[in-house]
Design a protein around this nucleic acid. Sequence first.
DNA 1: TCTACCAAAGTGGCCAGGCCACTTTGGTAG
DNA 2: CTACCAAAGTGGCCTGGCCACTTTGGTAGA
Lengths: 232, 232
Amino acid sequence: MPGGTTGSGVAAEVVDELKGRVRRGVYGPGDKLPSERALSEELGVSRPTIREAIRALAAMNIVSQRHGSGVYVRSLDVFELLEPVRFALEVSEPTLASLFQVRLALEPLSAQLAAARATDAEIRHLSSIAEAATASRVSVSRFLELDTALHEALVLASHDELLRTIISSLAFLAHESRERTVRQPGVRESTIRDHAAIVRAVENRDSRAAGEAMDRHLRNLLTASGTERRLR
Amino acid sequence: MPGGTTGSGVAAEVVDELKGRVRRGVYGPGDKLPSERALSEELGVSRPTIREAIRALAAMNIVSQRHGSGVYVRSLDVFELLEPVRFALEVSEPTLASLFQVRLALEPLSAQLAAARATDAEIRHLSSIAEAATASRVSVSRFLELDTALHEALVLASHDELLRTIISSLAFLAHESRERTVRQPGVRESTIRDHAAIVRAVENRDSRAAGEAMDRHLRNLLTASGTERRLR
DNA sequence: TCTACCAAAGTGGCCAGGCCACTTTGGTAG
DNA sequence: CTACCAAAGTGGCCTGGCCACTTTGGTAGA
């Protein structure tokens, strides 16, 4: 009973069918789908309908169409899959408070797991990121980049795909607000301290300390951003 | 410099054009777009191309198509917007253990918020669900249905759209494993007890107790299910 | 033998015109 | 004033076709 949530109609069914095949791995990333004419025959629907379905999948960044060549399954990376919603999020806006609530529940977990599971190479990577942010002449955008990278590296080191998917999605949502938060006085300094504490805990394989350090870090950011503001 | 990121081709241009109109407020939420035939004439492209463009916008949850009526700009609620997250979660094929880890982080939060924010009607609804499961002659599938309904009702009562999106997506992933778990001896009884405790805490507006009850509930399920099995 | 080129096949992009199913609406009969 | 129904409007889908681009394999030249 896979996710047939798209709607009714033949085209919608084709979308679900193809989406299902990608989900089940019938077509993996990089693979070429059958030609529109072939799919048309196989599924017993007209080519325009197939085209509509493929256009929808392309809009969701699940496939990409290459004129004269074929239709290919994309990387299925979380960020890419979320990109189509970026536009719509300009109007929607989850509350910052809500976002932080969820991050406060998940990111300490991410840090805990990272402390327990990170490889030595991953720990070195974490250190280098935290280190890079301490340099005096770091631009705002570069600082944001490093901040994002640290959270991403942590959840990668947790070796938990599900956590990575969710946290990456949230980071995507948070991106807009971070630009403002990081400009507030003192935030960069406290962020550097917090990051250092997290990395130190991971280096020491201290799950509890890592989780607590992350918790403090997020609460600091929350305080700095003012909780009632909306994203964007 | 509006978001002309879609790609090349006439259909892509139509997508950008329509997207731009929505962005600029030419068509606001709830508004009806011109008919496909009208757009076709106005933009000087064929109707199939217009249809492809509209299908793409629908895939991005920007508009919705209503057979016989028209194409409407959507209200853009967060839950629907984050539908792509669901797909992303499904392709990642998480471990049961990983799934429980995340649920253990999020669902107690959901219960806490519900205890603090639920309306009287929502509390009555919760009670009725918990009540229905205590009847002696409830089939396995019906029991599962009620279990899902309770978790869903809780997160609804939390009045947090972001949480709702994530937890609903996870519930979908969990579905397969629940069918097995619920058949294990004693699980239904303990579930009934746990649910009752959660509902009681919400009725008493006791956030802490609600969170703890949910935590115990999930740990009971986790114990009963054996953690190493893979979903799907 | 190897390289460069080119033509044919395959594929997506787009169009024209048509029929059907569903929704909406305004007039009409009760 | 209400209930109903027919016509108009709209999206959903199909057939069939032509064009533009990419790929590929064979061929002519070095």
